[in-house]
């Protein structure tokens, strides 16, 4: 599909130094007092509380799911997170806890994290997860095919997985840490969106470089420009490496000043994270109580 190539290679270039400077400048925004309280609650509502370990067990997933529904058992005003994110094998366990709670259930699929499996295996993986109760699928693209310039293969896979998802929302993981350049991040974003992604997501969390502010900035620019061109809005999910409230607030600032209100909602922006939630909870408690919080007062799951 030479059209695909001309689309992706016709996108404006990204200057590395410029985009990093812009992201760093937005990172100096000072979000305090009432704005911070608002930001923390929004960030909690945007968390895809994640566990993707070989050591995951039903017990672990059950505990995590319970926490997703009621992150701070001591404070009923604390909102639930957006979703729980687990491996397909754990989907039925999580589903049993999350049913009717309003918390979504996301499953990674398509031979996560490498994506190096035949297509029929990937599709079966996807269908299993959906059948087990996942209403969101986080797929990985074939970075090898992308880097080899086989955009059609990547595109076709996304289309096929999207179809296998049925009503489930499809998040497409670009694994930006393996793409090598910001130009590729922009191209992969457009490729995924054009193929039907509901969300574009930075990372699996399984390679050394996960979500960064500049990468997320480029992806936000991509969804903004894609909507301007096609009318369809796509969500963004940075994942991996976001551990502190301070980090999360920087991402919210990025949304606020790049794409604005339309993306400031869990429907359009998610954090793929595990330890972030507890830091958000501690900061939230600090704002309510006026003194610093300690980790012993929050659940470790």
């Amino acid at each position: 599909m030479s059209d695909l190539r001309s689309l992706l290679h016709g996108l404006p270039g990204v200057d590395k130094v410029g985009v990093e400077a812009r992201a760093a400048a937005l990172g100096t925004r000072s979000v305090k007092t009432s704005a911070k309280a608002q930001a923390i609650d929004l960030a909690i509502r945007m968390v895809d509380l994640t566990t993707l370990e070989g050591a995951d067990t039903p017990g672990k997933v059950r505990a995590l799911s319970a926490k997703a529904v009621r992150p701070d058992p001591a404070d009923p005003t604390c909102p639930s997170v957006a979703a729980v994110c687990v491996y397909p094998a754990m989907v039925p366990v999580a589903a049993s806890v999350l049913r009717d709670t309003g918390v979504h259930l996301a499953s990674v699929a398509t031979a996560f994290p490498s994506g190096q499996a035949p297509l029929d295996v990937k599709l079966a993986d996807t269908r299993d997860a959906v059948a087990g109760g996942a209403d969101e699928i986080d797929m990985v693209i074939s970075r090898g095919a992308f880097l080899a310039g086989d955009y059609t293969k990547v595109f076709d896979e996304i289309v096929a997985v999207k179809e296998a998802c049925g009503d489930a929302h499809l998040k497409v993981i670009l694994e930006t840490g393996e793409l090598g350049t910001y130009d590729n991040v922009r191209r992969a974003s457009w490729l995924a969106m054009t193929a039907g992604a509901d969300f574009i997501k930075t990372s699996t969390g399984k390679v050394p470089v996960a979500a960064t502010l500049p990468v997320t900035l480029i992806m936000l620019e991509a969804v903004r420009d894609f909507r301007a061109r096609t009318g369809r809005q796509v969500g963004v999910k940075p994942a991996g490496g976001i551990r502190t409230t301070k980090d999360a607030v920087k991402y919210l600032v990025l949304i606020n000043e790049t794409v604005g209100d339309d993306w400031l909602s869990p429907d359009w922006f998610r954090f793929g994270a595990s330890s972030l939630l507890n830091d958000l909870l501690m900061q939230r408690t600090k704002l309510t109580t006026g003194h610093y919080a300690g980790p012993d007062y929050f659940t470790l799951d």
């Binding site: 990204v14 200057d15 410029g18 985009v19």
Partner: peptide, 11 residues
């Protein structure tokens, strides 16, 4: 016309 447009806007 071939500028890195988002950085150009910042510039």
């Amino acid at each position: 016309d071939d500028a890195p447009i988002d950085q150009a806007v910042e510039g």
